[in-house]
Design a protein around this nucleic acid. Structure first.
Length: 571
DNA sequence: CGATTTTGACCTGCGC
DNA sequence: GCGCAGGTCAAAATCG
């Protein structure tokens, strides 16, 4: 074989070759040349020396031995090669079998689902993403009914459900879009999304005081850059916004510059949950509540908590993915002009209202070495209320995206909540649920691509998405989903959700008290702002997030053949 | 009576 | 080192 020839050439180069091998002419000729050379040399130096001839004979014997051993080694290598080949073939066969089964499962599950989605498909894959849910309490059920009825009326036009749905489809297998409900664990996270050991985000000084120094803390100290706070601004008359989680107040302080006390809460869903939040009224507008989440839940979340958790988690993930490559850590005010987030909100009375909020605030205060992302769910009335290092893009019901040159971005949620009292928004004014919240992230380039489109939307704030040109939307969505940061954030979020399922097989709805198995259906409806009748196709150069989604979808279906009417939120 | 909130003390980091 | 500010602890008070 070739290998053998190469091997022979190599040993030939070393000079140790027996001239009696005639398998290859050229090889033999070389050997003869060598031998002649040796003989010629010996003639010139010592023609009558028998001892020299004996040495030559001994040398030839050594060469023979080396050749034999080399051949033996070569045979071993070849045998090993054959074994590896067989092994590889076996692996490939297994892989193909699994792939076939996988596609079958996906296809079968997809046929069962009838939820509307957005198609993200340019590489024979469909990915739909939305953040939304309906909830289980009475109010939520009513809202859900409304949502469902509207969905029936508008078919694919709405984005009213809030959940994270992942829908895949290989276009080669199934020509139409079908959903794959993901039974994602609600054990999601606030703030950073990553595996539990790496998820804790508390500053070292907090850890040091406590004797509880586990691996998680070690990871934190080893990876200080991977910490994020997600600040959510909402209009809320209640002391705290209802985000679905159970919190216990453990402190209150008057922060400098704001007469309103800052309250400190920790999650009490699980005794060891590290997630904490700070709640403070905005000094500029007392009706605005600023809630800052920090940390990652290490337990299953109540249904009502998952939407907020997923939202902040996704935001934090994108923040972290962007901030990791951002400016110097020594900057007291560090900003990352990275991800622009588009949040799509819709109420139940009207068609989905796209909120394109191109700027996300990623910054850190002089006293906070960790980046903070601000999700602004308020109206423009409090535009000046953000701290100086935050540059906030104001918004009315249809916030105008501004692509300013500032290095600081604001992730600005919309204010549809206050203008739409029927909007089920748990984060605002005691309204219990979020009807629809879709998001996407775009890079700066993507912003430039879709800028005209977005501006057009804003300048003509008609919420009817069907008026939007589909190809433009497709282009925008394509750009969005092709953003590697979005993909990575999505992958991280899903990974955290899926990966954490193992140890937590149920979670508790804090209101209804019902125990829900995580393996129950988790139909996640993913949708970007889209024209209702025209699912958006979007491409992805990196297929990993889609693969992940696909896996999640199939996984959830395989384990949850039950009721798909109830949408669970993830965060 | 258990859970939650209140509140003053304490700890830590940072800037001067 | 000192003072300030943010954050946390934990005992007491309050609530359901």
């Amino acid at each position: 074989m070739n290998m053998e020839a190469v091997f022979r050439k190599s040993i030939h180069g070393a000079g140790g070759v027996k001239p009696d091998h005639h398998e290859e002419t050229g090889f033999v000729e070389d050997i003869n040349d060598l031998k002649v050379g040796k003989e010629s040399k010996s003639v010139h130096e010592d023609d009558n020396s028998k001892s020299s001839q004996q040495k030559d004979l001994a040398s030839d014997k050594e060469d023979d031995q080396q050749l034999e051993s080399a051949k033996a080694d070569m045979e071993e290598v070849m045998e090993e090669n054959q074994r590896l080949k067989k092994h590889l073939d076996r692996i490939m066969k297994d892989y193909r079998n699994l792939q076939t089964q996988f596609h079958e499962v996906v296809q079968r599950d997809a046929e069962k689902s009838n939820t509307n989605i957005i198609r993200c498909d340019e590489a024979d894959q469909l990915v739909s993403l939305s953040l939304g849910r309906t909830s289980s309490d009475t109010k939520k059920e009513e809202l859900s009914k409304i949502l469902m009825s509207k969905k029936e009326n508008t078919k694919e036009e709405d984005n009213l459900t809030l959940g994270l749905d992942c829908k895949f489809q290989s276009s080669a297998n199934t020509p139409t879009t079908k959903s794959s409900p993901s039974n994602l664990s609600p054990e999601s996270s606030l703030g950073e999304v990553k595996d539990e050991k790496g998820a804790e985000t508390w500053p070292p000084h907090k850890v040091l005081k406590k004797n509880i120094r586990n691996e998680e803390d070690d990871v934190v100290q080893q990876n200080p850059t991977k910490r994020a706070k997600v600040s959510v601004r909402v209009r809320c008359d209640t002391p705290t916004m209802n985000d679905g989680c159970q919190w216990r107040k453990y402190g209150q302080k008057i922060a400098k510059g704001n007469p309103c006390p800052r309250s400190y809460y920790r999650c009490t869903v699980a005794p060891s949950c590290p997630v904490r939040k700070q709640v403070q009224r905005c000094i500029e507008d007392m009706s605005i509540l600023i809630t800052t989440y920090e940390g990652t839940h290490n337990h299953p979340l109540p249904l009502s908590a998952t939407s907020m958790a997923f939202t902040t988690s996704a935001a934090a993930s994108m923040l972290l993915s962007g901030s990791s490559s951002s400016g110097s850590a020594t900057d007291t005010t560090r900003s990352t002009n990275t991800n622009a987030l588009s949040y799509h909100l819709s109420d139940i009375n009207s068609k989905p209202k796209p909120f394109y909020l191109p700027n996300s605030s990623i910054s850190s205060t002089p006293h906070s070495q960790y980046p903070t992302i601000t999700l602004d769910l308020t109206s423009s009335s409090s535009a000046s209320s953000l701290p100086g290092h935050h540059q906030r893009i104001t918004s009315s019901n249809y916030p105008t995206p501004r692509y300013n040159n500032s290095s600081t971005n604001i992730l600005n949620f919309s204010s549809a909540f206050e203008s739409n009292p029927l909007l089920p928004m748990s984060w605002s004014n005691g309204i219990q649920d979020v009807s629809s919240l879709s998001f996407a992230t775009r890079s700066g380039e993507i912003l430039s691509q879709s800028n005209n489109y977005l501006q057009n939307i804003i300048s003509n704030p008609k919420p009817t998405q069907s008026l939007l040109p589909q190809d433009t939307i497709s282009a925008a969505t394509k750009a969005i989903t092709s953003d590697p940061k979005f993909q990575s954030a999505l992958a991280v979020a899903l990974t955290s959700i899926i990966g954490s399922r193992g140890g937590n097989h149920h979670h508790i709805d804090e209101k209804s008290g019902q125990n829900l198995k995580v393996t129950e259906p988790f139909p996640v409806l993913c949708s970007f702002p889209s024209t209702s009748n025209n699912p958006i196709k979007c491409s992805s150069n990196n297929m990993q997030p889609e693969k992940l989604l696909q896996f999640a979808a199939s996984k959830s279906k395989s384990t949850s053949p039950g009721d798909h009417k109830e949408y669970y939120t993830v965060l």
